[in-house]
């Protein structure tokens, strides 16, 4: 793993607050994922790839935009790994590499439904802001 990649890996781990080493490879995240068939890389692979620093293919893959942020994987993971947060962090990393954020924070409140979960909103913006 080159140095740049390991920095990025550390950054993703930091942003997500997830420790991918806690994964025990049970696959319950992938078993529970409603968008599984849409994805090239599946939730359990996500965790594994981040842990191994295989970030390039992950960031290039459309899979990261297929995650619905339904948090089923977060809810059901027996080890508390929280794959959805990793997905979110990878998406964020892509956006940061592009060096842009399309919306200003103050523009957001008028256009969102109040009942939407906060994280879903933020995620949606990241997802569709590519």
């Amino acid at each position: 793993m080159d140095n740049k990649n390991s920095n990025l890996q550390a950054e993703i781990v930091r942003m997500s607050g997830v420790n991918p080493r806690k994964c025990m490879r049970c696959g319950k995240c992938s078993a529970t994922c409603p968008a599984y068939d849409e994805m090239e890389y599946h939730p359990h692979q996500f965790v594994y790839m981040v842990e191994n620093g295989e970030l390039e293919p992950l960031m290039k893959s459309k899979s990261i935009y297929k995650c619905l942020t339904c948090f089923a994987c977060v809810d059901r993971c027996p080890r508390g790994v929280e794959p959805a947060k990793l997905v979110e962090a990878v998406r964020l990393a892509v956006i940061r590499q592009q060096g842009k954020n399309h919306l200003k924070p103050e523009d957001i409140p008028p256009i969102v439904d109040e009942d939407l979960p906060q994280q879903a909103i933020v995620t949606a913006f990241r997802k569709y802001a590519k």
Partner: peptide, 24 residues
């Protein structure tokens, strides 16, 4: 692992992952 079991009619729909085959 099995991610979800949903009763449907008289069946139980089991959604699971096969990690070695990389399939749901």
């Amino acid at each position: 692992m099995v991610g979800k079991v949903a009763p449907e009619g008289d069946k139980l729909m089991v959604q699971a992952s096969d990690l070695l085959d990389n399939k749901q």
